[in-house]
């Protein structure tokens, strides 16, 4: 048996196995039916009386499963921390994306405050409309990305401020949870007045938690963007 023939047999066997697995997986996926009348409808039924938040997804993320969100924010923090361990002496690095473009430079100055404002709007209205802390935080980070592209090496984030914002907002999230534990029955419980559905001041602790999450995510993703854009060693 020559080696050429051996490879051919192996290829045929592997492709047969892959096609059998594909057919099986497609069969399983196509016959899947989501359950109706499960956890989601229960949560929708009690949402108005417990949270008064117009966006049910937000109340699931920050109230019914708030501990999950705390773990998620912790994972994001640990990831940024690991990246910061690997890349040292960030202030001496050079920006590798240097565009010398007049339109970009002038447009960035005009757009920067507007994008920041829009990000805060999305964060604050997280319990009324689609959006929330994570989405608004990423929008704020995109404003910093625009500034990094426009101002080549002149703009540097003040890492004392970003670390302070990140630490304070993380501590604020935990503090809200502990206050809920002390004042009412459980961790991340609601200790504020609920308000009326659809108004800005409604939802109890939900807007407070989402503001903390938004500040934390915006500081973290801005730091992340700076790590990846300022990567070249200065000579």
């Amino acid at each position: 048996m020559n080696p050429k023939r051996e490879i051919r047999v192996q290829t045929i066997v592997v492709s047969l196995l892959v096609s059998i697995m594909t057919i099986l997986l497609l069969g399983i996926l196509l016959s899947f039916q989501p359950l109706s009348g499960s956890l989601g409808s229960e949560l929708l039924a009690i949402n108005q009386t417990t949270t008064q938040s117009a966006n049910a997804v937000t109340s699931v993320v920050t109230y019914f499963r708030g501990l999950d969100t705390l773990g998620e924010v912790t994972i994001l923090f640990l990831s940024i921390f690991g990246i910061g361990l690997g890349i040292e002496r960030l202030q001496e690095k050079e920006n590798i994306f240097s565009y010398d473009n007049a339109l970009l430079k002038i447009g960035a100055d005009i757009l920067f405050p507007l994008i920041i404002l829009f990000g805060f709007y999305i964060i604050i209205h997280g319990h009324l409309s689609p959006g929330g802390g994570f989405q608004g935080g990423v929008v704020i980070a995109s404003a910093f990305l625009l500034m990094f592209l426009a101002k080549n090496n002149e703009l540097k984030l003040n890492h004392k401020i970003t670390t302070l914002v990140e630490a304070l907002s993380g501590a604020g999230f935990v503090l809200v949870g502990i206050l809920g534990l002390l004042l009412v029955d459980r961790f991340l419980g609601n200790f504020l007045p609920l308000g009326t559905l659809g108004k800005l001041w409604s939802g109890g602790v939900i807007p407070l938690i989402y503001i903390f999450v938004g500040l934390k995510v915006s500081a973290e993703i801005s730091t992340l963007v700076e790590y990846f854009i300022r990567i070249k060693d200065a000579r």
């Binding site: 499960s38 989601g40 409808s41 929708l44 108005q48 699931v60």
Partner: peptide
Amino acid sequence: FGVNMVDPV
């Protein structure tokens, strides 16, 4: 809120 909404979970 009611039956005419998709599952938020």
